[in-house]
Computed example of a mutant assay.
Amino acid sequence: MPDWVYAVILGVIEGLTEFIPVSSTGMMLLAKHGMGLTDPFWNTFAVMIQLGAILAVVVLYFRKLWRAVITLPSDPASRRFALSVIVAFIPSIVLGLLLHDFIKGVLFDSPVVQCVSLIIGGVVLLLIDRKAPAPIHSEPDQLPLKTAFVIGLFQVLAMIPGVSRSGSTIVGGMLNRVEKRAAAEFTFFLAIPTMLGAFVLDAIESRDQLLAGDNLGLLAIGFVTAFLVAVVVIKLMLAIVTRRGFAPFGWLRIVIGVGGLIALRLA
């Protein structure tokens, strides 16, 4: 297949999985492994098209985000919202910079780690969906700073590919008595600085690789595809979470993880 087809496929996978708790990184690695995409460019591609999915959050929540920005100097609630996202982001800044090379060089290239993490994460989601304490925080932009920081610590777990950034932060939120939908929405907001930071870091490290051949064109295809798919998925995810919780995503993780292990065994 031509490279642009791979770019579209990976863009669809990114848009489908970035915000649902099934691990976009794990899905990307398994997809690349299955399609035989061994060129290091595709690892960079997988990280950088996440910005397309993040743009979907900005577009869908533009009114809320823009209001927070323009009222930041005068509205204590806006300052609290911004500070909660910053506080939650801090653990990822520190450990992300310290462990970046290890994660990309060791964990990132292990399909077995991805599959096992998917299964474990699926079981955790099923348990949390049933056993989480009763929520007391129902607004994602009004979380206490302590709660936001704890959610940020849970996000660090997603540095193990397959764990799922959204899944770990949602679990952290629900364990700290954040309502399911609010936990999901705070995860969306936290994704903006987190994924933007990952994008900038990889762009700087891989700038020569990105300028080679048609790589920028492939990135543009993946970016646009991820954005369009993510717009639909975010709305769909919130509808599912509101009606059925996170159990469907837990079972989905388990099915994909078990299927991946079987496929790797038979390969």
Rank of each mutant, 00 (worst) to 15 (best):
N43M: 01
V258Y: 02
G257W: 10
W251V: 14
S78G: 15
F89I: 09
I128L: 10
G245L: 00
S23K: 07
D39K: 00
V12Q: 13
G173H: 13
L16K: 08
T194M: 06
A31H: 07
I54D: 07
S24T: 04
I70V: 15
H137W: 14
I240A: 03
E185A: 05
N215L: 10
G260S: 03
R79M: 12
V8M: 09
P144A: 11
T25M: 05
L210A: 05
T147D: 09
F89E: 08
W4M: 13
Q209G: 06
A212N: 14
I262P: 00
S23V: 07
I49H: 05
T44Q: 04
K235F: 03
G26F: 10
L196E: 06
F62K: 08
L219S: 11
P161H: 04
R165Y: 06
G259E: 10
I240T: 06
M48K: 00
E185N: 07
F188S: 09
M1R: 11
R79S: 13
A88Q: 12
F108Q: 00
H137K: 11
M159L: 11
F81T: 04
L97N: 11
P193R: 12
F199T: 05
A184K: 09
A31R: 07
A53L: 14
S92Y: 02
S78P: 15
F81D: 04
L55N: 05
G122L: 11
F189M: 06
T44D: 08
S166N: 07
G34Y: 10
A220G: 15
G96T: 02
V59T: 14
L252C: 14
A267W: 13
T169W: 08
L201W: 05
R244Q: 08
L107S: 03
R79G: 12
I93P: 07
L153I: 14
I254A: 01
G260A: 05
A82Q: 13
T44G: 04
P144R: 12
G121R: 12
L201M: 13
